[in-house]
Design a protein around this nucleic acid. Structure first.
Length: 270
DNA sequence: CTAACTACCTGAACGC
DNA sequence: TGCGTTCAGGTAGTTA
């Protein structure tokens, strides 16, 4: 379940090996739900950005950026360069041939997506088009975050997962941040003070996870095939049945927005 | 429009 | 040991 820290770690490794290269050919599994990425062929990658859980490769032809390759890892997506101890297997769903390397996109569960859009035009990708601010960027501010949460009547966890109040938070870091901020995942009205606490918790949890290059349970790998080191630091996500490290109460597992959710019934009361 | 629900996908874990 | 069932979860599409 790659979320912002995992995608950031992948982007950091991908960037130096993609930017400045020409995509000479592309292949994708016709059975995948990828839209056509054929337009990427023959273009140069001028920049690799990350927005939330998306990676965006700016593509230029004749020195002008006109297209964008949008990449999402979904649940099990990973990029690997041929060589590097990596040999392609049956789960490779797309291949980008660069002028000096071959890059495979491997995705066991096929939840990942690659698609080419006109530069900056995300009309066909609703989540990206309505994506909230970067949690570690200057646009993400406590008051604005409070106002964004107040605009919806969904539970706070469902809102985080929607990517609208803030970009890049998924199931793992939502549970971690809500635990840290002592907010019940089902809470629907979040006051200014608690919004500010959650704002801080999201930033802290993501910053720490990025330092450890993400959380690996099973599938997430970086370009070099290595795992992230954050899994052993998780306090809430998947820790149900264990005592809360803060108050000792047994952490409970519930379903929120259709997702497994772990929280502390004592210190995350409301 | 909003919010809730479901499908997608496949290996791992579980139950008998 | 073997086989069937359930679970995980980000997003898109559908429904109310």
């Amino acid at each position: 379940m790659p979320e912002l820290p995992e995608v950031e770690s992948v982007a950091r490794q991908l960037r130096p090996r993609m930017v400045g290269r020409r995509i000479t050919a592309v292949w994708w599994d016709p059975q995948s739900r990828f839209t056509d990425i054929g337009e990427a062929a023959g273009r140069d990658v001028s920049e690799l950005r990350r927005r939330g859980k998306y990676m965006l490769a700016l593509l230029q032809a004749d020195g002008r950026v006109d297209l964008e390759l949008v990449m999402h890892l979904g649940m099990t997506g990973a990029f690997r360069f041929r060589g590097d101890g990596w040999v392609p297997d049956v789960y490779v769903r797309a291949t980008l041939t660069l002028d000096d390397a071959i890059l495979d996109f491997r995705d066991v569960r096929r939840f990942g997506r690659l698609t080419v859009v006109p530069a900056g035009d995300y009309a066909t990708i609703a989540t990206l088009a309505h994506l909230g601010p970067e949690p570690l960027g200057p646009q993400f501010q406590p008051d604005q975050f409070h106002a964004a949460l107040a605009r919806s009547r969904m539970s706070v966890k469902a809102q985080l997962l929607s990517q609208r109040p803030v970009a890049g938070v998924g199931n793992i870091y939502a549970d971690e941040a809500l635990w840290r901020a002592r907010i019940n995942p089902r809470a629907r009205r979040i006051g200014r003070e608690r919004a500010a606490r959650l704002w801080e918790a999201i930033r802290a949890v993501l910053r720490e996870a990025i330092e450890r290059e993400g959380t690996t349970f099973r599938d997430y790998q970086m370009i070099n095939g290595e795992s992230g080191r954050n899994a052993t630091f998780l306090v809430a996500y998947g820790q149900y049945g264990r005592p809360c490290p803060r108050c000792g109460e047994t952490l409970r597992r519930i379903l929120v927005a259709g997702r497994g959710t772990t929280y502390c019934p004592r210190c995350q009361r409301s």
